[in-house]
Design a protein around this nucleic acid. Structure first.
Lengths: 112, 112
DNA sequence: TTTATTCATTGCAATATTACGATGAATAAA
DNA sequence: TTTATTCATCGTAATATTGCAATGAATAAA
């Protein structure tokens, strides 16, 4: 029914899924990569950068801001967005923890 | 229009987004964590584990299998799934590369 | 004041996702 | 053969996402 039954899962599982959802669109990946490279970037550049319409970019920025992955300040007429450094490390650690849960058994084809 | 304009983005951006999408649901996070812990697991266990209906689990497993994150073999009457070790490392490296693109500038509040 | 620029919000249409019941296929057990 | 078990697929309904045009708010420039 298009409804995800969050109550069946742990807060950690729901949080990781929500963060993954924020990364689950190439436009948002592109926006983040641009912010990572440029250290800061006004909204208008992103419209040129991605080829998407301005309202669409604005919507993706809002999604990223909702999870605190980015932050923005007014820069004259423009809006300047950038990565939220602390949150970025936090999220990186969450994903690392998830992926590192797998450790191959030494010298064994442990799998089907 | 509910359609993501993949052509506007690089193959790497699209691939990372697609992988993130696979992780963008707590049920799939839970399934993967269970497979990581149990090393292997029959389908029926996952139904009990998650509290979701069997067709729903089957659908999530198919999504994970489509990206090669998991693999399955017939185990008598049951189906045994497990992590695809090589692919897991590959995906881990992709996410690491993405997150590591951020390096805080030494001794500078470089951000807005 | 008027106009231009920049970004956010709203409203709509198209598509995708989530979930489940019903059904099908395949094997094992009686 | 008949029945039970296990998983996949199909069909469905409900909800979410994506994208844009239109519009609004705010500031700067003329």
């Amino acid at each position: 029914m298009g409804v995800t039954k969050s109550k069946l899962f742990s807060p950690a599982q729901n949080e990781l899924a929500e963060l993954a959802k924020a990364l689950a669109h190439p436009a948002r990946i592109a926006i983040l990569q641009h912010l990572l490279k440029a250290r800061a970037c006004i909204n208008g550049d992103l419209v040129l950068e991605t080829g998407l319409a301005q309202p669409t970019i604005s919507q993706h920025l809002r999604a990223l801001k909702a999870l605190n992955l980015i932050q923005g300040t007014v820069e004259g007429v423009s809006m300047s967005y950038c990565i939220n450094p602390g949150r970025w490390q936090e999220v990186r650690a969450l994903f690392n923890g998830f992926f590192d849960a797998y450790t191959p058994l030494p010298g064994a084809d442990d799998c089907c």
